[in-house]
Design a protein around this nucleic acid. Structure first.
Lengths: 233, 233
DNA sequence: CTTCGCTGTATACAATCGTATACCTTATAA
DNA sequence: TTATAAGGTATACGATTGTATACAGCGAAG
């Protein structure tokens, strides 16, 4: 809802909001009718055609809007978590220098990020529900757009991990690959988080564990076993 | 298609096959009409009601059928991979005894399993497409059923890892948690595998990498760093 | 042999659908 | 000032929908 404030034209915004609502709370984007959508938006059915050629175009518009308003906040969130553990401007200490310190810091940032992430999910469930749903939905156009979006998230994450020194040195390809896997896991778990409120702690822990496993595993494979051995000694 | 041979009643089977077809190739399970389904099955619209109360019931029937015919093959597949590396009956060698040997064996089983898995996906794409799609689809009933199904897969996997000695000793909860994460990753990647034939090698490698990372990461966290260090020395 | 329950069909109908056509308002550009 | 374009509405129509009711074949049970 509150996501779609950038859209200038009244009717267009109403339609996009109604669509996000319907898609999240009732059926898939391709499962409700044009008239049903118009009804929920309080508009004449034909108004749809003033702004969109078909449902794919509507879906893409929603994705674009949501992307703009979700991607940066997610980055900020990660920086925020990092800075709460390592205040900005503090002198960098390499993994080689102090494995244990970096390991612990990494865990803390991880924990904080996951918590903030799920809080973010909770405050904007509709965007996540529709996004994850249509990622494997029936429209090839939307699937492609959403896969690209997730790659974007993964790219951001890789960059942040690099810049914030959250992992010992990985080659760029591996780092991106790990980030992609983490993205997939997080978005998947966000659905469980939304739908099973009574298991939220569990889901949160699951997310933390997966990220730790993925990152530490990749560190091992990249040849940093001894480093981790030192960290855990 | 070939999955639904257990269903005794002709019309019921035709409807389930048609539904799987439509859901995989056109729209979501809730997006096509009862009449469209009947048309594709070559039946009268009303025949639907002879077998199902609504679409959820149809979906559950499909899930049950597919489960029966997919779960055991997946297990066999893993055993097959394991035995191709470590012939059945050969004397067990513990991870403590020979970390390097077990590590290499584990990688090989992993590789073989992933290849077999994707071959399996390729030969039965419809079941996977519909399964993954409806896992995050709009029907709570189907979502729940599919989440349970995935837990079943994860449970099988954990058991096999344990029995086949594919990982150093983990506490049961962690093992299950890792297995669940692997399941999620594999099912997600199966969609990429189906939809992006030109990237299949890449997807395959991604799957292998994620499994290695998850398992080795969990081994590290479980306190087996030194073991891995030995294996990689 | 009859009865009954199961599977499938035929017909029918009101509701809803997508969309074509025409019209109204309002802001902007000429 | 008057055109023009954009955003939104009103009406209309044929196609499709879900489903109610009634009926037909057929195998099993009585």
């Amino acid at each position: 809802m509150s996501y779609l404030k950038n859209v200038q034209v009244e009717g267009k915004r109403l339609l996009m909001e109604a669509a996000l609502n319907l898609a999240a709370n009732t059926r898939s984007l391709d499962a409700f009718s044009l008239r049903e959508l118009a009804r929920n938006a309080g508009l004449n059915p034909n108004t749809f055609y003033r702004h969109f050629k078909d449902f794919d175009e509507l879906g893409l518009a929603i994705i674009d809007e949501v992307t703009d308003q979700i991607r940066q906040p997610l980055r900020d969130l990660r920086r925020e978590a990092a800075e709460s553990v390592v205040p900005a401007g503090s002198p960098p200490i390499s993994w080689q220098e102090n494995p244990r310190l970096n390991f612990v810091r990494s865990l803390q940032v991880n924990n904080a990020t996951v918590e903030l992430f799920f809080a973010f999910v909770e405050s904007n469930p509709e965007a996540f529900i529709v996004g994850v749903r249509e990622l494997h939905g029936s429209s090839p156009v939307l699937r492609k757009a959403l896969r690209k979006l997730m790659q974007g998230f993964a790219h951001d994450m890789a960059e942040d991990i690099e810049v914030l020194g959250l992992l010992p040195k990985l080659d760029p390809a591996s780092l991106l690959s790990v980030s992609e896997a983490i993205s997939r896991e997080m978005f998947h778990l966000s659905m469980n988080y939304i739908e099973e409120p009574e298991r939220r702690d569990e889901v949160c822990q699951q997310a933390v564990a997966s990220i730790v496993n993925l990152t530490m595993g990749s560190a091992v494979i990249a040849g940093h076993v001894e480093l981790l051995a030192d960290a855990l000694r």
